[in-house]
Amino acid sequence: MVALLGAHLADGVRAQLAARPPEGFALTLLIPRQSAEPLPVERFVGATAAWMEEATEHAGALDAGALDVGAALSTVADAAGDDLLGQILLQLPTGYDLLFGRPRPT
C-alpha cells in the first residue's frame, strides 16, 4: 500500500516521507515507480485493500476496505507530520484527506 502511495507522489515528497520512521517506508517508497496520474480514492482503496490480509475477509467491500486502508494511512499521516502530509495531500485527488484520518475543511 505504501508503494502504491509512493507511486503517486513527486520524488521530493516521496523521499521526505521515506526518511521518516518506520524504516519500512524507505524500502517501499524509494522503489522507482511513478503513476501516470493519481488513482481516485475508490480505486486506491480497492487496489490496496486487496493486498491487506485484514481486508480479505471483507471480500472487496469498499466501505470496509476504506476502513482498513484508512487505518494504515493514519499511521503514515502520523509519521509524516502535518507539514509533509499537507504536501502529500496537494498531490492527490480529493478524498484522500479522509483516508489519512485528517479531514480538511471544504
Rank of each mutant, 00 (worst) to 15 (best):
A77L: 04
G24K: 01
D11P: 00
A61F: 09
P21H: 06
W51S: 12
P93Y: 07
A64E: 14
T94M: 06
R43N: 10
P32R: 08
T94D: 15
D97V: 11
Q34F: 00
A3D: 08
A7W: 08
L17R: 04
A26G: 11
D82F: 01
L27S: 10
L98F: 12
D63N: 01
L39Q: 09
E57A: 10
R20K: 15
D63K: 00
V45R: 00
L99G: 09
E23S: 06
R33M: 12
Q91P: 08
A66I: 10
L39M: 14
V2K: 00
D63F: 03
L92V: 14
L73G: 11
A50W: 05
T56H: 05
G24Y: 02
R43D: 15
R14G: 11
R104M: 14
A47P: 00
I88E: 09
T56W: 07
D83A: 15
D11N: 11
L62N: 00
L89C: 08
R20M: 15
D11R: 10
A47W: 01
E42R: 08
V13D: 06
F100Q: 07
L9R: 02
T48Y: 00
A47I: 00
D63A: 13
T94S: 14
I31K: 08
A64K: 05
A80L: 13
G70V: 09
L89Q: 03
V69A: 10
F44G: 02
A36S: 07
Q91T: 09
E23M: 03
T94C: 09
A26V: 03
G46L: 14
P38F: 02
A66K: 02
R102S: 14
L89S: 05
I31G: 06
G65V: 08
Q34Y: 01
D97S: 10
G60S: 11
D82A: 14
P40F: 02
D63G: 00
R102A: 15
D82Y: 01
R14K: 12
L9G: 05
G95T: 11
A71K: 01
A61P: 00
